[in-house]
Design a protein around this nucleic acid. Sequence first.
RNA 1: GCGGGAGUAGCUCAGUGGUAGAGCGUCACGUUGCCAACGUGAAUGUCGUGGGUUCAAAUCCCAUCUCCCGCUCCA
Length: 534
Amino acid sequence: MDKIVSLCKRRGFLFQSSEIYGGLNGFWDYGPLGVELKRNLKDTWWRDMVTGHDDLTAPAGAPQAYQMVGLDCSIIMHPQVWKCSGHYDLFHDFMVDCRESKKRYRYDQVVGRWVESKGQKVFVTVMPETDDPATEIEPRALKFFNLRAKQADQLVYHGSHASLATISDMATVLAPDAKQLGTLTPPREFNLMFKTIVGAMGTEEDAAFLRPETAQGIFVNFKNVVDSSRVKVPFGIAQIGKSFRNEITPRNFTFRSREFEQMEIEFFCSPESSNEWYRYWRDRRYQWYLSLGLSPERLRMREHDAAEIAHYSCGTADIEYAFPFLPAGEFGELEGVAHRADFDLRSHQEGKLVKKDGALVVETGTDGKPRHKGSGKKMDYLDQETNRKYIPHVIEPSAGADRATLAFLCEAYREDMAPNDKGEQEARVLLKLHPRLAPFKAAIFPLFNKDGMPEVAQKLYLKLKKRFNVFFDDGGSVGKRYRRQDEAGTPYCLTIDHTTLQDQTVTIRDRDTLVQRRISLDAVLPELEKLIEG
RNA sequence: GCGGGAGUAGCUCAGUGGUAGAGCGUCACGUUGCCAACGUGAAUGUCGUGGGUUCAAAUCCCAUCUCCCGCUCCA
């Protein structure tokens, strides 16, 4: 992994943000090669999912034909968007740290019970792993008071178990993993959303948030898109854009960044068909990564089990990649494909929802009114054929553009052996990027800087440049120029030599096989189109 | 946020109190001519940043930032 990070810096794929000022944790800049790679990735996604999508025929695995449209929403939205979506509550936690065990806990998730023994009264806490915290508390209490299991009758409980949030004095609390009393810090506020102020004279009352995901912009524009674009359910809305999260621990190169780019689709369908569509999108997105070169050994699809699944979801799968910085056997998330049912559209219509007795209902405050009031705007859809009104169900394939870029870089990095000019095998570093993703599609070299070769090469270069991002290089030996392009991931090199001057042919050299063949100058452009675009 | 390690040229790194270094890369010239060739020359550093100790600090001390590893967190 260090070699990949080093190559990224050396060749201009990725730089640390604000590096000359010492860097900024969790922020990254894409250099000249990186911006092309990431842009190609996003363009490929957009073309494959949106503009290039065949909306006239049902794709393999899909229940029927469907439409796809795009959207580009503002990063800052009305604060109520995040209250109804659930992010405001979920991304805003109080945490306590244990000075002894060095562990950190969600303040509201720690559960404890007052226990008295040997003249001492202690609030014994656990991070409950079962539905019955009392059975987990007792062994902790016995151990603290230095009692055997058969002496449990010496423990006197006061009241039933309760949240740590009911305790004001941390000095009498036994932390979940501590041996001593009073090791917990006071609760401290963690806000995972970036707060900002709208308006030059704005105050705290004008606080807003940078979006932590692009999806909500799609949901709040659902009606606008339906009313303006003649789409019919089933259809999808796609968006690519930046999102922001105050990750507690940015780590692993660009994998967990605080500013990152997402490629998201919200696919709207009828409730009856939603499970079929979920399976379609899950499989389709998995295949997309394979089609661009991620190896099946390092890419996996993992269905969430019932405990992990969000309360509103009827199915979620992560597409995960075995990044080289992770321990062997571990995978990191590239994309989540979630069946979100009607949770999001209903939330923006009615208000923030919670699950109660197996059903989603509007969460209410102590006053009985909605905790976070919805827009009140109808989010239902009228199916003109059946004359039926319903709130569509949603399948959400949500991909990380930076994570995918990193995965393709990791997958592409290879060290192999190639012959030098004496025929000896030498180490070679190359990026085996798919031609659609490669920053440069081809490089053009004059073999010698004389006999008119530079002129022919320049003419070809300028001709190709109108269609593809290509690179011209006349510096150093041709072998060195090949190796430089290998390291940048350029799939093809075109060399103008003496033969070119006689018969108007050039050599085209393949990055992966090193094989060279001759094609005519006029055939170069169509040949590249065939090789790159298939 | 905690603990451990690290930060010196674009990259990889050497340098334990006394003149700032190497290899690779980059650029120029010459030579060569289809897979990182060779020769000559050049550019590139307030040694992460800020303080302190000292006649003198890359080197010792303190603080801080960033990166890596392990905890923790990750709708």
